[in-house]
Design a protein around this nucleic acid. Structure first.
Length: 354
DNA sequence: AAGGCGGGGGC
DNA sequence: GCCCCAGCCTT
């Protein structure tokens, strides 16, 4: 056994953790009448996203797409609409790609082995382990941010948890500590522990079922762990956003590229000010989109922060006498119809000006 | 190994 | 303002 693991009594640790979990586990939609599909969908939605945010999305999604077959045959735009506001939209597109592969290649049965699961789009090391353990009760680690934090404290691991080597190390430890009696509950227990007690700031160690096993607690350094290097600052990008109305009361919307940021979502036309001067907007819109527009009035300034960019948007109203556009990615749409399209949150904030 | 990829909430 | 969240994919 590894030296670091000698600090804990594994059978006692498992019992302490699982008994706490059986009494205190959270009542979550994907834990009621679970099946591998529900586990899968929930795990994708929960990537980098808090439980409270996910719950309403999950419930709506399962109502609309109860099985892999329903999701496989759905229109991608409808799936994105269901995902609207949840962020990281490639998750939704990858999920649908993977579900279609499950239907086509695996007869609709979600694979229960590492190799086939890992080959599916959007399923990485964590999600693979989560599905194998939670849905199929296999003793496989599922190392997410919670698990990294909890075990960096329990085992007093002072390496940067952002590093690949640290993740592998912790994954190996979890593989040795995980309960073979109830691996599903074990992994979920660690996550519940991380979400409710072993929190990033001010962990409530007094309520922790495994405090006696925790190296960091014994040394009083739980708030110093885990070690993680700081994120980089976001770059600012400035845009003019145009609310272009024609004389039928319709507005121009455009579909974003099928890759990159907010792929395949719709938005109001955006003019990047690092490429186009403020006095060249009309000409640029005509050259690029074939829209002959007239600037009307200033509307508002909005700032929207992503994980890696900050958009500073100057919203302006404009008008055009056209009512037809010669491009698939551009269209006129009546105000009442705009709800049918998936929009990023940044542009939803502009709807009130229409 | 590093960067792209959303949005919300806590402090 | 900063940090974090049931991470994955591409380069």
């Amino acid at each position: 056994m590894n030296k670091r693991l000698q600090s804990i009594n594994i059978p006692v640790f498992q019992t302490d953790l699982l008994e706490w979990y059986y009494l205190n586990k959270r009542d979550l939609p994907w834990r009621r009448e679970p099946n591998p599909y529900k586990t899968w969908v929930s795990e994708i939605m929960l990537q980098q996203t808090k439980v409270d945010t996910v719950i309403p999305y999950f419930n709506r999604f399962m109502e609309k797409y109860p099985t892999v077959y329903d999701l496989a045959k759905a229109d991608e735009q409808d799936v994105l609409k269901s995902w609207e506001g949840l962020g990281y939209y490639s998750r939704a597109r990858n999920l649908q790609t993977a579900v279609r592969e499950v239907v086509d290649t695996y007869n609709g049965e979600i694979p229960n082995n590492e190799k086939e699961l890992a080959s599916l789009k959007g399923i990485g090391p964590y999600t693979k382990g989560a599905i194998l353990s939670i849905a199929f009760n296999q003793p496989v680690p599922a190392v997410d941010g919670n698990v990294l934090r909890v075990f960096s404290r329990i085992l007093q691991i002072e390496d940067d948890i952002a590093k690949q080597s640290t993740k592998k190390e912790i994954e190996q430890y979890v593989g040795e500590i995980i309960s073979h009696q109830d691996p599903s509950s074990f992994n979920q227990a660690i996550m519940d522990l991380g979400a409710t007690i072993c929190t990033p700031k001010k962990p409530t160690c007094m309520f922790c079922p495994v405090m006696e096993h925790c190296q960091a607690f014994q040394h009083g350094i739980q708030e110093q762990l885990p070690i993680k290097k700081k994120a980089k600052k976001q770059k600012i990008k400035q845009y003019v956003v145009l609310l272009i109305r024609n004389d039928q009361g319709e507005y121009v919307i455009e579909k974003r590229s099928d890759q990159g940021l907010l792929a395949n979502l719709w938005q109001f036309p955006m003019v990047p000010l690092d490429e186009v001067g403020i006095d060249q907007i009309e000409q640029w819109m005509y050259d690029k989109c074939g829209i002959d527009l007239q600037m009307e009035s200033d509307c508002d300034n909005l700032k929207h922060t992503f994980s890696h960019i900050i958009w500073e948007m100057d919203i302006k109203k404009a008008s055009t006498s056209q009512n037809f556009l010669n491009k698939d990615s551009l269209m006129f749409i009546a105000k009442e119809e705009i709800d049918n399209f998936p929009f990023p949150v940044s542009h939803q904030k502009m709807m009130k000006f229409l």
